[in-house]
C-alpha cells in the first residue's frame, strides 16, 4: 500500500521544528507501524538524510518507549495498543498519516518524535516505592492479600509509563500515571505505612513538573495502551483528602 506521511522534524531541544511530507509505497499490511518507519528511515539513510528519531525498544508493547501521536491519537487508531504493536492493516491504501511527538511542557521534544519523559521518573522518585531495604522482608505468605485487591493492584501496576495519558489529555495532566502508582501500592497491605506520605509527595512533584490538572474527561483512560482505569484517579483524590485531613 501507499502512504503519505506528515512527520514532525526537529533537530534538537532548542531548534524550531516543522512538519515534513514523505511518500511511501510498497508498505505491507503485516508490518508494524514502527517497521513502516524503519522502511522510511532506510530510504532516508540511503539518500544520506537524517533518519526520523523516535523512541522504541522492546517492540512488544511493554517497555513504554514508543510515543507518538498518530492522526491525532496517542499510539494511533487502535485502542489498548502501543505504537509498536499497531499494524499497518489498520490503515488503508493512500491514507494520510500525521505523526507528532507528545506535546506537554514537562515533556520537551529532544529530537523529532523523541521527548524527555524524565518527569515521570521524578514523580516515582518522590514516593512511588515502599521503603524496604533488601533483606528486610518476611516470608511472602505472611501477609495474605485478598485476590481482588491483588488483582486491582496488578491492573494499576500494568502502567508502562509511556505518557499517552498526558498526550491525550486536553490539559496535559499526569493524573492517570500518578494515580496508577498511588493506587497500585495503596491496594496492598505493604503499601499502607507510607500511603499518606506517598500521595502528598507524588502529587506535589507532579504539580511541580508543570503538568496540567485533571478535569475528569477520561480521555486518558481511552488512550492508555494498558487500559488503566480512571477509578485510580478517584482513589488518588480520596487518599489525598484523607492524608490532608488525618495526616
Amino acid at each position: 500500500m501507499k502512504l503519505s506521511l506528515k512527520v514532525w522534524r526537529q533537530k534538537n531541544k532548542e531548534a524550531e521544528g516543522q512538519f515534513k511530507d514523505y511518500a511511501l509505497s510498497d508498505i505491507s499490511p503485516d508490518m508494524s507501524f514502527l517497521e513502516m518507519l524503519d522502511v522510511l528511515n532506510e530510504q532516508l539513510l540511503a539518500k544520506g538524510e537524517d533518519p526520523v528519531a523516535f523512541d522504541h525498544d522492546c517492540r512488544e508493547g511493554i517497555c513504554g518507549s514508543c510515543s507518538m501521536m498518530i492522526n491525532g491519537k496517542p499510539h494511533g487508531p487502535e485502542s489498548m495498543t502501543t505504537t509498536c504493536q499497531l499494524h499497518m492493516r489498520k490503515f488503508k491504501d493512500g491514507d494520510n498519516v500525521v505523526i507528532e511527538p507528545w506535546r506537554a511542557s514537562p515533556f520537551p521534544v529532544i529530537r523529532d518524535l523523541v521527548v524527555d519523559r524524565s518527569a515521570f521518573d521524578r514523580i516515582i522518585q518522590a514516593g512511588g516505592f515502599i521503603s524496604v531495604n533488601t533483606g528486610n522482608a518476611q516470608d511472602g505468605n505472611t501477609l495474605p492479600i485478598p485476590k481482588p485487591d491483588a488483582d486491582s493492584a496488578m491492573d494499576a501496576a500494568a502502567c508502562i509509563g509511556c505518557g499517552a495519558c498526558v498526550a491525550a489529555c486536553k490539559n496535559a495532566s499526569a493524573m492517570l500515571f500518578t494515580a496508577a502508582k498511588v493506587s497500585h501500592l495503596g491496594y496492598l497491605p505493604q503499601g499502607q505505612p507510607e500511603r499518606q506520605r506517598r500521595v502528598l509527595k507524588m502529587v506535589e512533584q507532579m504539580d511541580g513538573e508543570g503538568f496540567g490538572n485533571c478535569t475528569n474527561t477520561n480521555d486518558c483512560e481511552a488512550a492508555c495502551p494498558k487500559g488503566i482505569s480512571v477509578k485510580n484517579i478517584t482513589r488518588l483524590n480520596k487518599d489525598f483528602l484523607k492524608a490532608t485531613i488525618f495526616g
Binding site: F129, I130, V132, T134, G135, N136, A137, Q138, D139, G140, N141, L143, P144, I145, P146, K147, A150, D151, A153, M154, A157, H184, L185, Y187, L188, Q190, G191
Partner: peptide, 22 residues
C-alpha cells in the same frame, strides 16, 4: 526464596489464590 519475599515486600503484585496466598 529470598527474592520472592523481597519482591512481595516491595509491592510486586504476584498472582494469588482466593485465600490470599501466593
Amino acid at each position: 526464596v529470598n527474592i520472592i519475599d523481597q519482591c512481595v515486600a516491595q509491592g510486586v503484585p504476584f498472582a494469588r489464590e482466593y485465600g490470599g496466598n501466593l
